[in-house]
Write a protein that binds this DNA or RNA. Sequence first.
DNA 1: TTGTATGCGTTATCAA
DNA 2: TTGATAACGCATACAA
Lengths: 350, 350
Amino acid sequence: MTQSAARATIADVARRAGVSKATVSRFLNHRETLLSSEIAQRVEVAISELGYTPSPMAQALKRGRSRLIGLVLADITNPYSVAVLRGAEMACRAAGYLVMLFNLGNEIERESAGIRALSSYRVEGYILNTMGHDPGAVMETARQGKPVVLVDRLHAGLDVDFVSLDNRQAIDLCATHLIEAGYGELLLATEPLGTVSSRIERVQEFQAFLATGAAGRTRGQYFESAAGDDAALDAALRSLSTRARKGGRLPAVISSNAVVTLRVVAAMARLGWRLGEDIGLVGIDETEWAPYVGPGISTVSQPTGELGRWAAQCLIERLDGGAAAPRRILLPGTLNVRGSSRPAAAGKHS
Amino acid sequence: MTQSAARATIADVARRAGVSKATVSRFLNHRETLLSSEIAQRVEVAISELGYTPSPMAQALKRGRSRLIGLVLADITNPYSVAVLRGAEMACRAAGYLVMLFNLGNEIERESAGIRALSSYRVEGYILNTMGHDPGAVMETARQGKPVVLVDRLHAGLDVDFVSLDNRQAIDLCATHLIEAGYGELLLATEPLGTVSSRIERVQEFQAFLATGAAGRTRGQYFESAAGDDAALDAALRSLSTRARKGGRLPAVISSNAVVTLRVVAAMARLGWRLGEDIGLVGIDETEWAPYVGPGISTVSQPTGELGRWAAQCLIERLDGGAAAPRRILLPGTLNVRGSSRPAAAGKHS
DNA sequence: TTGTATGCGTTATCAA
DNA sequence: TTGATAACGCATACAA
């Protein structure tokens, strides 16, 4: 325990125990098969006396496998991503893997840099939650022959395991709840679609829902809300309200994720509208603040921890040799009803 | 570029360029000193043709230094921590270091595990934002002779660089603002003090402020709010209100961080009080939702990115040989005034 | 059952 | 200026 600055190596242990390095290594890796007599004892005490821990770097170099799993996050600032990270981390830890994180910080051009960095550390597989803007980068992972699992966002041309919220179920949940609550003119507000599969899918499922009998005479549109453009959002909201009034319906917004939910909330302040009364709102993504903004914001919680856990699970199974066809794992969301989707006295909006 | 599964090694490059491994290594590391003639050319093209990248693991093994910096976070779920992480990451990247993250997930008993894991990867220094509950673990870093910088939380007996919000300035900012806004009976609500230096410091600075002339006839107390115990918080708030009424003052809360701010907000809902009117509130830690909860919540923003940047900076300077005495870097917060600290019509609370 | 020798991908020391 | 070679810490094939 009382050790000088440098970490003990396997040679130190061997010397101290009066055995060879190979024996120490065997004690560490093949304890059961090549059992030693009382030499194991000596090695064991030497190890604990020296506080010896094998160097994962040297092990990786020798074995060709690192017990590292690479996790690429588009934006660690996003609570969704962090929650997924936690789930994945726990599953990996349980399986003896360490998660090596690479945060893109929303700089899509770093996508390949991230994968290269992880690759240089010989990670054994990748969990990707990126923009998918740099197909070359992601293809590189496939080329390496290392397993990949995508979270939340599909990549064109990459046929691998995929773990995500069941967007159809989530959209259905939002829409039917809103309709049952009395709202009849819907707007799906989303971040700009771009190539992000989850955004696109939510819009498509929304449109599919509207085309269904379940929608009744409900009408709906969608709107892409860009980061700085408050005016466009306000206009879309006003237009929604106008359509609703003309049709004798109550207007409501489904926001496609927490970022957009916050934008809609901000718009309420600008427009002087009250959630639930002047307009309905249910947002995908539960947040800690949802219960306390306005009358409380109705949300659909994603099973974020589970998503991360599943992602890790998929990867680890493939690492263990499971070679089935790519899986698609879609987990359901759960609805949290709050004031933002309770029309107070039936449409008293101006 | 067109490569088989395995990554190219320095030997591949050497073979391709028709030189020795040593030459390739020199090209990579000592380009200026031992300049080669047109051999450099050959090496250069071979490298790019093969898409060769040195293995950081092998480099670390040989050099004894990893260009890795270990970052231990108490809870990555906390936006404060993530913001610090981002700042630190950017500074490290600029200096050619990679951040290796270890998240404690608030499990304090993992503190030593985290440091050991990082240590096994031969990180060259540590940025620590932990509970400090496991002194042994942290001492271990010191024993290793590797530089350490503490963020937000001091550790007893560990005399190293420290980067943090200027708690005195922040508390003064909150208190004087509240007083100027007309509030005279203050309550500092904090998470249980335990051994967390930042919490303790904020309480002490609060008490110091009250003892000062600046406080005038203002009175104040502090309250430790435990995670599940809503009743205690409600009681503390009611008692605050009672004291205020008796003294003919307006009551206000300073919440010590974002977690507590949210608890106070939740209490408002339970008690049926309105922020700003029935009670004032200013919280340390800016959040994305602060503008939209109730009348908007006044906050003090921490310069989180800067904190992270400074932490990395300190570490890197020591890594480069700077051996001065431990530094204390205290950065000021900035006040964001919103509705929660604007008494509407002078104390119309019951 | 244990020890010796070799190699993983690098860098650094020495000769050439 | 360049090329063998040893060594970093470890795991394993082989020999003892």
